[in-house]
């Protein structure tokens, strides 16, 4: 809809400038698919598009099964969290000497399944289109408790380093590494910066004891991980174990 500027603006100038607005109109025009494409712009994008095509088609690694993002945990969620865990743990050791306890991502951030067979760069971008980067937080025991409860409420999120059992009353037992969760100690947790900004309701990430930005995107970490596992073992290593178990699976939120 075109609107008259005279309805929107006070026309007579108060400034000492010589000109003032006496009329006009404003409209927001949608760039529909019926608008013809400008050929010089098509020519300009073409080499980028070709190069991108080659880039997207590049083989990153190989799988021998499909990897799916499914709650409460799945092979793709386990894989993603494990690769982030491995990367963050080595960075944390170098920077502070401490070991990482847990990696948590969000299932909603894994946007697509990984196919069975060759994995292309395009597949990796589809799984993780966002530029979220890896951060490491030091959390108090009580924040950890909130985190575990949040994961349970959400029906499970990608985790690594954690075994979580939820009983019928939504009470949990948790193990980090081989040790039972202890709410009196602090924990080192790797996640994506998106979640530390309060994404997906992870409010307990907002005020950590300490935060380290690792300056690497989650996608880059996944790409490197898939590459190196394929180089090492021929295919990405399966991770089918159930890390989050609900006594009453029927009551698990799916969304």
């Amino acid at each position: 809809m075109r609107v008259s500027i005279l309805f929107l603006i006070s026309v007579l100038g108060v400034s000492c400038a010589p000109y003032w607005i006496s009329g006009g109109s404003g409209v927001n025009l949608t760039i529909k698919s019926s608008v013809p494409k400008d050929s010089s712009m098509m020519a300009f994008i073409a080499p980028y598009k070709d190069s991108l095509k080659t880039f997207i088609a590049g083989i990153v690694g190989k799988t021998d099964t499909g990897y799916f993002p499914e709650r409460p945990c799945s092979n793709l969620s386990n894989l993603s969290a494990d690769l982030v865990f491995g990367f963050a743990d080595s960075c944390l050791k170098i920077q502070t000497g401490f070991s990482l306890d847990l990696a948590v991502l969000n299932m909603g951030g894994l946007r697509m399944a990984l196919p069975n067979g060759e994995i292309t760069m395009g597949n990796m971008f589809e799984v993780m289109p966002f530029e979220n980067s890896v951060v490491v937080l030091k959390l108090s025991g009580s924040s950890m408790d909130s985190l575990l409860r949040h994961i349970i409420r959400r029906g499970g999120e990608p985790v690594s380093g954690l075994k979580l059992e939820v009983d019928e009353k939504q009470q949990y037992s948790a193990w980090l590494g081989q040790r039972r969760f202890d709410s009196r100690r602090d924990y080192w947790v790797a996640t994506s910066d998106y979640l530390t900004f309060g994404g997906d309701g992870f409010a307990m990430f907002k005020n950590p004891i300490q935060i380290l930005y690792l300056k690497k995107t989650v996608r880059d970490v996944l790409i490197r991980g898939v590459q190196s596992e394929t180089q090492q073992y021929g295919v990405v290593q399966k991770r089918t174990e159930r890390r989050i178990v609900y006594a009453n699976e029927a009551g698990v939120p799916k969304k």
Binding site: I5, S10, Y19, S22, G26, V27, I31
Partner: peptide, 22 residues
Amino acid sequence: RKVVVNQAGWAGLVLGILRLDF
């Protein structure tokens, strides 16, 4: 006094157009 405020969607989906007479 009145101020014109506009925004054009995102991703090059919309072109905001203001035609003004002075």
